[in-house]
Amino acid sequence: MDLTIAILQGLIIAATPLVFAAIGELVAERAGVLNLGVEGMMVIGAIAGFAVTFETGSLLLGVGSAVLCGMGLAAIFGLLTQVLRSSQVPTGLALTIFGLGLAALWGQGYAGHSIAGLQPLHIPVLSELPVVGPVLFSHDPLVYVSVALVLATAVFLRWTRGGLVLRAVGENHDAAHAIGFPVVAVRFAALLFGGACAGLGGAYLSVVQTPFWAENMTAGRGWIALAIVVFASWKPSRALLGAYLFGGVTYLQLHAQGLGVPIDAQYLAMLPYLTTIVVLVLISRDTAKRSLRAPACLGKPFFAST
């Protein structure tokens, strides 16, 4: 029983960075922009969160700067793809390469240090419930922020005028432009939201989950977040589910050796990546349905003719 509780707790913590990154990318993709730079924005968030927390002692400042740095990188992507009309795939790759390099440069002096991470909340009554208490009600605040963010995004996309405009821009940018929606501005805003979320996800890794800084500590989580968006068929609630699924696999990979599974660490470490491939194949198999679900203008450039 205690082991089950520990696994469920660990799963939620392992999944939270993926929840943040995936929901941010989901919004950007619903607006029709494919940003392959999630990994770069996450790793910048990780170092910004750690470095600022380390220097100032304030977790709030650390997390805040992670969000700002993620948005900064997203703004570069937005400037290039939306204003200077560069192709989205190579621009996203450049963002990842740049982010990984810049984070390593910035983090040069921070490896080996540690900070007092974000502490779990203690909610009266709820935290003391058996099983449910430790599993659901004894986490750090950011776990609840991530779930709230998913719910808010779902409501925004489904029920608000802003969400409708965003989806219209992603489904048919020419029609949206003809109606008079500001396509470029909407996409820029969606990208900034994506950057903020990825930065937050990265900060969660370095400020809560570990809490220390290591080069390339995101280890492909940004790419897995991209796969989660496909898995989720661009629906927020399913992105949450997907993130928890991958969180479970990541947790399993990290702790299987401790539980006495006699497999080399490297083979266990392949698990999240192999799972991603298997899931992508299962999701993509039904090509007819897939094309119905993906935003119709995803990844396509938009040039207003006037």
Partner: peptide, 27 residues
């Protein structure tokens, strides 16, 4: 005594600038 990652920074910057300047090919 800079980290080798400085290579990645320059590579990313170069690709950014290239993609940005490329707008002038067709516009």
């Amino acid at each position: 005594s800079l980290p080798s990652a400085v290579t990645g920074v320059f590579q990313g910057l170069l690709l950014f600038f290239l993609l940005g300047v490329d707008v002038l090919v067709t516009y």
